[in-house]
Design a protein around this nucleic acid. Structure first.
Lengths: 352, 352
DNA sequence: GAAACTAACGAAAACGTTTTCGTGTTGACA
DNA sequence: TGTCAACACGAAAACGTTTTCGTTAGTTTC
């Protein structure tokens, strides 16, 4: 095992001081050309690379971004990470990942683990448990320590930080309007409980679209699903709920589902009930992922541009990090941006 | 913005030396109980946490694992990461992610970026371009520097490191045998070009199963797909190839596909050709992901236990890292393990 | 020939820890 | 009263950098 080569080692080998080596490698003209070349040749030969940790300690910058997400085995989140990594890498940053698994305590733990010098800033999406408890002290404390946060998708308005969100309301509204324009008169929605704010927003969009288009609002066409129903691939409860709704409301001719799984389950139940898609029932999902693209029939859905969300979040964070170098915290009256990424309706076979 | 609190700061505030503070916090009995309590109370009140970077520099350990994968928007890889993160977190390690995007140069760059002190060891899966070029110098150099690597799934035998692989050959063989036992007589395979070693192994398993069961081997039933066919969601070329094979060989009654997309495409084409699944054509895929579970009909497929792969890789790496603390590089004749994770055939509706 | 300047380099501090090795003060003991 | 141990603490080195501020020696200037 070759020892890792350091400035000190080069200095000793070449009988010069550490300072001289450091300056030579930086091509400082304080050092004679002769010495510079000698040092550079030596360093190159032994493939010297400065130690990142030492640099981090000195510069008080790690050039690393911490990302905390609720889950990673998930098309949306992994695509966001892809976007983050893309920009981060381009701008010389590393990405370190923490998973909260939708748990409050894991979210806190992960943030504490990273906040002590390991990273320069956070990009995160709030876990469901945190949203439910509404305990956001860890975010506020982190920010108070001077570590910037960028939140995406599942955000909390009261926290002072940049945010990147999806226009959930408008996206849902457009989806429902598409159903209306395609001839649907009785449109149902399959959504989540209200504490997941994006779920609530999507429900709002649904309601708004109906109201603006003078369609009757019918509570029995709004199915709010328990989150636990998705655990362990056990979809049966979800299926039963959907089946119950479709049977007791046979007039339903369009369904808007707030995620892919819900939408696919709707199609599955419809098939079981011998309803043809899109002739008898049109379906639109939210989150345009691999499932929508490969479903049978392929699923019309609202694309959130997950990659772009990640890219913009990374840009916002890095911009702020590099701004701080100059401003030096003078302007305490900082302005935080909330950027809205537009959704796009991807039309496929599940709608007319 | 509160200044980050340090030992030096506590020391000054309490009029003791830095050493005393450090020792007090570690409950060293070298320090009087009175002083200890005073320091600890102060530290707790101001929520002191030691700076990770300084610790890393001192200990020459970062407690961080670097993971380099070809892509992250991919069920298999994201599930592996989930497994890695699970174990890593449990044992006090962080996970830092680098994406190679299947590119050799990005793989090298990412490794260089991390190898200079940022991490203690690597877990990685080799990019396709690297496999094709067969240029592995970056792995060997990293290992020579004393940084351990654990490879998973796409590995290279000649490299001296721990490996976690899937029994691709046996898994495929079992899948094909399942088709044979379910009455298939003319079984086709949709696979990749041979330089992706896992693709080659799966092809081998297919051939082996046929031979052992005295089934004729027919080259026109082996479809080796160009990887570029999958780029940009443009599946048409793939569809055409499959359609061509199915039409020119109408006797085909079973297809084994080496990944989910290939399998779904087979089913799509079969539907177009009015072949019923599984009555006329049985299909098995490899990699049991969200697509297999939600396809119509649901897809029988070979599960690789991606999460377990990640967990074992993390365990192997961390074990080695923590062993090194004691052995101190004396035993140069180290033994490296190659652990095989068994596959499992998950039977669903696409087979009888 | 002294003053002033320049070129080329080194010493040392700093980042925040941990740890080894003093060192001064006490009290006990002979 | 002198010796020794125990106690409680501090100084300093070390990890690997970067950077400021000397310090030489040699060269110019009048």
């Amino acid at each position: 095992m070759k020892k890792k080569i350091t400035l000190k080692l080069i200095a000793k080998e070449l009988n010069v001081s550490i300072s001289t080596v450091s300056k030579s490698l930086k091509n400082s003209k304080e050092i004679s050309e002769e010495t510079r070349e000698k040092v550079q040749a030596f360093a190159k030969f032994y493939n010297y690379k400065p130690n990142n940790i030492a640099l981090s300690l000195k510069n008080k910058k790690t050039k690393t971004i911490g990302v905390i997400i609720p889950e990673i085995v998930h098309y949306f989140f992994s695509k966001v990470i892809f976007g983050i990594e893309h920009i981060a890498n381009q701008r010389g940053y590393n990405v370190i990942i923490g998973l909260s698994n939708e748990s409050f305590s894991k979210e806190v733990l992960n943030m504490e683990m990273l906040a002590n010098g390991s990273i320069d800033g956070f990009i995160l999406s709030i876990s469901k448990e945190t949203l439910e408890k509404r305990d956001f002290h860890h975010f506020n404390e982190t920010i108070a320590q001077g570590m910037p946060i960028v939140m995406f998708d599942r955000v909390e308005d009261s926290i002072k930080c940049d945010k990147v969100i999806v226009d959930d309301l408008l996206g849902s509204k457009k989806a429902v309007e598409k159903l209306i324009n395609s001839g649907c008169n009785h449109i149902a929605i399959v959504t989540t409980k209200d504490f997941v704010n994006v779920g609530a927003l999507r429900t709002k969009g649904y309601i708004l679209a109906l109201e603006e288009n003078k369609k009757a609002l019918n509570d029995s066409l709004i199915l709010k699903v328990e989150d636990s129903e998705l655990i362990d691939d056990n979809l049966t409860q979800l299926e039963q709920d959907i089946e119950h709704m479709l049977i007791s409301n046979p007039e339903i001719d369009g369904v808007f589902a707030v995620n892919e799984i819900y939408a696919l389950t709707v199609m599955k139940v419809a098939r079981k009930l011998k309803k043809r898609i899109p002739e008898d029932l049109q379906v639109i999902g939210f989150s345009d992922g691999v499932l929508s693209q490969n479903a049978v029939p392929t699923l019309t859905s609202v694309s959130q541009h997950a990659q772009k969300i990640g890219e913009r979040a990374a840009e916002l964070l890095i911009n702020r990090l590099e701004l701080e170098d100059y401003e030096e915290e003078e302007m305490e009256l900082e302005r935080y941006e909330t950027e809205v990424i537009e959704t796009e309706l991807i039309e496929r076979e599940s709608t007319k």
